[in-house]
Amino acid sequence: MANDVWIADSYAKINLGLHVLERLPTGYHAIETGLCFLEWRDHFEVRQAPEMKLEIDDESIPTDESNLINQAIETLDRYVGLKHNYLFRVDKRIPAGAGLGGGSSNAALTLRMLNKIEELGLSDDELIDLSRDLGADVPFFIKGKTGIAKGIGHEIEEINIQPNFWIVTCFPNEQSSTPEAYKHCAPNPDPDFDLKKTLTEEEIDEWQYILNNDLEQSVFPRINVSGNMKDQMYEFGAVYASMTGSGSAVYGIFEQDFVATNAYKGLLELDFPTNMTRPGFEPDYGIYRKA
């Protein structure tokens, strides 16, 4: 119906380990990384409109063609020819430039919502095929399943690796450039520890000794607060802490809720955007008509 308003949530991710294996001739990098979800989310409202328009409540986020939401709309329109124009309103909560996948998550949800609203009948695999130029994390967010991503991030082996512990994630109010992070990272084609085995077989309190994000070596010297924040997570009582993706956000994994809550409150008091995610969290991937 023309007057329907559709709502859905777009979730953030964190990387559980990230191995940069080689620099490819294309300029991309071959990686392997574990991907799981946070409760940190953006909220979408979509309705038919006289023209395509994107409104975001955070004025620091551009709404022009550089925004992945607009790129996703253009990609789908080019592929199938959309029947209507839409107003996208986004309540933006996931920080940009944080390594949390907010842009890719937004692009994936845009494709999924238009696929449902316009009754296009495209499968997840078809959406992934047409989204390959939008971002390496987009296929993960289309599938909505945790797993190990390989290649340039498009090849995902679905495994339940969502930690059954509390996750506290903090953005240090400094954005990290993904190209810069990879530019200054030395690839290692032969990591010391097998990522899949570590995530599925090792106890989580062993992770700090064997599970690495290779991009920390290039980001922490440039964004000191991220490195300091990782140390702070351990001081708060985390059993494992790491930067996510190309940064600059850092997360800590906590066994006990009161320890996680103390860390969460402490970071909020320092005026850092912070999220706490429940053990075994599963995102709601539903797309709903607003009552």
Rank of each mutant, 00 (worst) to 15 (best):
D57N: 15
D214F: 04
T178W: 00
L87F: 06
V219G: 08
S226K: 01
I167E: 12
I167F: 11
K183P: 01
L109I: 14
G147S: 07
A181Y: 13
E255F: 07
Y11Q: 02
D77R: 06
F254Y: 15
A30S: 15
F165D: 03
P221M: 13
Y288C: 04
V239S: 10
I161V: 12
F165E: 02
D137Y: 13
S218P: 05
N164T: 03
N70R: 15
D231S: 13
I69C: 11
D214K: 09
T26S: 15
S226A: 13
V250H: 10
P62L: 14
N262F: 06
E269Q: 10
V5M: 00
N262I: 00
N70D: 07
I56R: 02
G247A: 10
P179D: 09
N3D: 05
Y86I: 07
I73T: 04
T63V: 10
P283R: 00
C185W: 05
T169K: 05
N228H: 09
A107L: 11
S176Y: 00
R278V: 10
I223Y: 01
R278F: 01
S123Y: 09
I156E: 05
I223P: 00
Y86S: 09
D190I: 11
Q232D: 15
A291T: 09
P139N: 11
L199G: 02
Y182S: 10
L35P: 07
M233K: 08
E65L: 13
R47D: 01
Y251G: 07
Q175W: 05
G286N: 07
V80L: 02
A136F: 01
L54R: 14
I7Q: 15
G245C: 12
S105F: 11
L18D: 06
T244L: 13
M52W: 04
I204D: 04
S218A: 14
E282G: 00
G280D: 07
I128H: 02
D64K: 00
L130W: 13
S10R: 10
F44E: 08
R222M: 02
E201Y: 06
F193K: 12
L120P: 07
E22G: 12
E32S: 15
L35F: 15
P279S: 06
S60L: 06
N160M: 04
K53S: 10
P163Y: 00
G153K: 11
D91N: 13
